[in-house]
Design a protein around this nucleic acid. Structure first.
Ligand SMILES: [Mn+2]
Ligand SMILES: [Mn+2]
Ligand SMILES: [Zn+2]
Ligand SMILES: [Zn+2]
Lengths: 148, 148
DNA sequence: TAATCAGTTAGAATGAGTCTAATCCGCAAG
DNA sequence: CTTGCGGATTAGACTCATTCTAACTGATTA
């Protein structure tokens, strides 16, 4: 189901867009709403299908555009596993991803700062990294029905 | 330049192939040789072009087939960064990958067991992971001309 | 009003990877 | 030797996520 954006969410969206010289549009709001409604790392097609429920005229091209815009202004992260379709994640906290081999579901795994530090410490001198991606592949006992 | 396989390398290849019910062929030897000659994580096309120097009739389809075979029998790893072409890595030791934003070069980063452990420890109960992928994106001061 | 301009849209193009069907070739049975 | 078999190789067709293009929309500005 598609939630409504809280005032906080709207401000977050507006601020990030305006800060990078772009506008809030109905399409961008719809796509952002979809992302925040179910934090299950949807693909572009999944976002497209969910968003059309609430905005039937929306085009796939626009979903690609919105998501690219959001990535550009730091509102969401892209998540890739092997060569599968790119998925999108609005969780801005540092976290890793766990991909369930059976179900395909993607779960967020919290990343404690001390682990980040120990990771950064394995880089030899001369290597400076801005982005670290960590992804697990395995099986998760389904504890609940939502997948975040 | 394309090295020659040592006896050890040949045995390694043969053992892994035979163990999974497949044969050593001239094409597979050529592709494997390319992978061991420069451990720079080549793409399929790069492998193809290098291998053709030594085996001109080789086809791209066969390079795809050989690499898939090697992955299947654990001789090499696939390395993906975002949606770029898949790269191939014959380094079987546990390691992470560092991708240089400027040059595109991929470097191996050794992964000490204690770091692996601390990573595994962040998984909540119920999550069991066989594979962990770690990749850094950033800039590396070019210390040398080879890229491993 | 007219010009401008970001955003949206449909559809074409791209390209890494996969699939298909024909051929090749080493080996073993006759 | 021939022949048959089965895995491997090959060229080319195909797929499909993503990117590109060019026309259109609609709000804002001169
Ligand atoms: Mn959950
Ligand atoms: Mn090096
Ligand atoms: Zn996430
Ligand atoms: Zn590697």
């Amino acid at each position: 189901m598609i939630r409504n954006l809280t005032e906080q969410d709207k401000e977050h969206l507006q601020e990030a867009l305006v800060k990078s010289g772009q506008k809030v549009t109905p399409q961008r709001e719809a796509v952002f709403t979809v992302l925040l409604s179910e934090r299950d790392h949807p693909t572009v097609d999944e976002v497209f299908n969910r968003a059309r429920e609430v905005m039937p005229g929306l085009s796939l091209a626009t979903v690609y555009n919105c998501l690219e815009t959001f990535v550009g202004c730091g509102l969401v992260r892209q998540v890739n596993h092997e060569r599968e379709s790119t998925r999108y994640c609005p969780n801005l906290a540092p976290h890793a991803h766990f991909r369930d081999k059976e179900t395909g579901q993607v779960h967020d795994i919290e990343l404690p700062p001390e682990v980040m530090k120990s990771l950064r410490s394995i880089l030899p001198p001369g290597f400076d990294s801005e982005v670290i991606e960590i992804s697990f592949l395995g099986r998760a006992q389904a504890k609940d029905t939502h997948s975040n």
